[in-house]
C-alpha cells in the first residue's frame, strides 16, 4: 500500500511538472527551414530534396551556381507557370523572412561542397543549327532523334508539349545539371563530361526553336 501511494505520488509529481503548452502558441511559432520545406516544397521537389517531379534541390552544383538572391527571387516570385510564387506579396503563404530562412537552410544542408558550373547564368544566345548537332551527339541516345524517328530510352525532350511546358530556364537547368537523383547517366554529363558553355547555349537554343510558336502555355 505504501509503495502504491509512493508510486501515485511520483506520478502526480511528474504530471505537475509537465506543462504541455510551454512552447509558444502555433501562431507565433518559428518553423524551421526543413519544416517549411516539407510543407511548401516537398510536394514537387521531393521529400528529401530529391526524386520529386520537379528539379531536385539536393544538388550542390545547382545550389552553388544559383546565387542566394536568385534562389530567393525564384521562391518568392515563382518561375514559369509550374513554380508558384510563395511570397505573401504575390499571394503566396510565406513571409520574406521565411523565404530567406528556407533558402539559407537549403544552401547550408544541400549545397555544401558544390562547385559552380561556372557559366554565365543568363546564358548567351546560342545557335539552333549548331545545337542540332550537339543534340545529336550528346542527347539523342537517351532522348531520341529530334524528328521522332528513333525513340530514346528516357523519353523525348523535343516533344512539342514538353517544350511548351518547360520554361527556357528549366530547359537550361536540365541541360546543365540533369537529374542526378534519377540515376547514373542523368547527371548532366553526357558521354562523361559537362557540355561547354557554348554547347549548352546552342542546344538550349535548338530546343527552344523546336517549341511551337502557338499554344505556348507559359503564360
Amino acid at each position: 500500500m505504501k509503495r502504491l501511494l509512493a508510486t501515485l505520488a511520483t506520478l502526480f509529481a511528474a504530471a505537475c511538472d509537465r506543462v504541455p503548452l510551454e512552447q509558444p502558441m502555433p501562431s507565433q511559432a518559428v518553423v524551421s527551414w526543413d519544416g517549411l520545406y516539407l510543407t511548401h516544397c516537398a510536394g514537387c521537389h521531393g521529400a528529401d530534396g530529391s526524386l520529386g517531379a520537379a528539379r531536385p534541390m539536393r544538388d550542390p552544383a545547382y545550389l552553388a551556381t544559383l546565387s542566394r538572391d536568385e534562389l530567393i527571387r525564384v521562391i518568392g516570385r515563382g518561375q514559369g507557370r509550374l513554380m508558384p510564387a510563395f511570397d505573401q506579396s504575390a499571394g503566396g503563404p510565406l513571409t520574406a523572412e521565411e523565404i530567406a530562412r528556407l533558402a539559407d537552410g537549403m544552401r547550408q544542408a544541400w549545397g555544401a561542397g558544390g562547385v559552380p558550373v561556372g557559366m554565365p547564368w543568363s546564358g548567351s544566345a546560342g545557335a539552333a543549327e549548331a545545337g542540332a548537332s550537339v543534340y545529336a551527339a550528346h542527347c539523342q541516345a537517351c532522348h531520341g532523334a529530334a524528328d521522332g524517328r528513333a525513340p530514346g530510352t528516357h523519353g523525348s525532350v523535343t516533344d512539342a508539349n514538353y517544350l511548351r511546358l518547360a520554361s527556357d530556364q528549366a530547359l537550361r537547368s536540365a541541360v546543365l545539371f540533369g537529374r542526378a537523383d534519377l540515376g547514373a547517366g542523368c547527371d548532366g554529363r553526357p558521354n562523361g563530361r559537362r557540355l561547354q558553355s557554348q554547347e549548352v547555349a546552342d542546344v538550349v537554343a535548338f530546343l527552344i526553336s523546336r517549341r511551337p510558336a502557338t499554344g505556348r502555355s507559359d503564360r
Binding site: 528516357h154 523525348s156 514538353y162
Partner: peptide, 10 residues
C-alpha cells in the same frame, strides 16, 4: 517519378 518521361514528369 523514376519511370516518367520528360513529358510525363511535366
Amino acid at each position: 517519378v523514376e519511370r516518367l518521361t520528360p513529358l510525363q514528369m511535366q
